[in-house]
Amino acid sequence: MSNGKPEPAVNPLPPVVVALFIAIVVPEAIFSLGASGVIGGPGAVGWRQAGIQTYAFSSDIFDWMMANGVWPGEHLIRFVSYPFVHFSLTHAAIAGVFVLALGKMVAEKFGQWQMLAIFVLSGAFGALVYGLVLNDPYPLGGAFPPDYGLVGAFTYLLWRGLGAVGENQARAFTLIGALLGIQLLFGLIFGGSGDWVADLAGFVAGFGLSFFLAPGGWASIRAKIRHD
């Protein structure tokens, strides 16, 4: 009890996390309802494919832009729009759960705008590395790369916490190791694309950005530079 008001049983989600979750869920709901014939009529069956063609990241289009030095806005937007276009309901559901769980934690520790910056920039960096490293015609879609950016931020918190108490900081990377191991196993069993490259790049971006966006992070970096 505080000031005569009962404490909520569950801490409320930061608004930015709710907004990202809605941005993931709403397109998927439209695609799924359309494919089921609930809305949109016969033409709605192709809504998901149309969304992927318009908003997913394409290595072929990226290669074309690189080769011609032309950067149309309708294609540059793919760097930040692809996390909100998923290939299935399950794909979107898992990505949404990651946003709720890790997004809440990162937003509460870093701040809401910092969390959003990590999500957006990690996703964009994941797409960039995917386009540069692979020549994969399969489009990149879904929020896993920016979700892995949030994993990177969470890993930073663990890494810094372990260092503060003199523990082995390598233990902080257990989660990313387990996630990539599971992803590799599923890829070997069921087959898959090279999107793990974007996921790993998203993690690296999230971890690296945390040095600047975590509370006191930039001040710590400046102090270390001055000391050296």
Rank of each mutant, 00 (worst) to 15 (best):
M1P: 13
S2Q: 13
G4M: 02
A9L: 09
P12Y: 13
L13S: 14
V16K: 12
V17G: 13
V17C: 12
F21N: 08
I22R: 07
I22N: 07
I22V: 15
A23K: 07
I24M: 13
V26T: 08
V26H: 08
P27N: 09
A29S: 13
F31D: 09
G34N: 04
G37L: 03
I39G: 03
G43T: 11
V45C: 00
G46K: 01
A50M: 11
I52V: 09
S58D: 03
S59E: 12
D63H: 13
W64Y: 06
A67D: 11
N68I: 02
P72Q: 10
E74A: 15
L76Q: 00
V80W: 09
Y82T: 10
P83Q: 06
F84V: 04
I94Q: 11
I94L: 14
A95L: 07
A95C: 14
V99M: 07
A101C: 01
G103A: 01
K104R: 15
M105S: 13
K109A: 13
F110K: 07
G111S: 05
G111A: 05
Q114S: 13
L116K: 05
F125D: 02
G126V: 13
L128W: 10
G131V: 03
L132D: 00
L132V: 05
N135W: 07
D136C: 09
P137V: 09
Y138V: 15
L140E: 08
L140A: 08
G142D: 10
A143L: 11
P146A: 03
G149H: 05
L150I: 00
F154M: 12
Y156I: 05
L157Q: 00
W159P: 00
R160L: 05
G161C: 03
L162F: 12
A164C: 05
E167M: 14
N168F: 08
F173C: 06
F173R: 06
T174S: 14
L188K: 06
G191R: 11
L200V: 15
V204Y: 02
V204K: 00
V204D: 02
G208M: 10
G208K: 11
P215W: 01
G216R: 03
S220N: 12
I221Q: 11
A223H: 02
K224S: 12
R226L: 06
D228P: 01
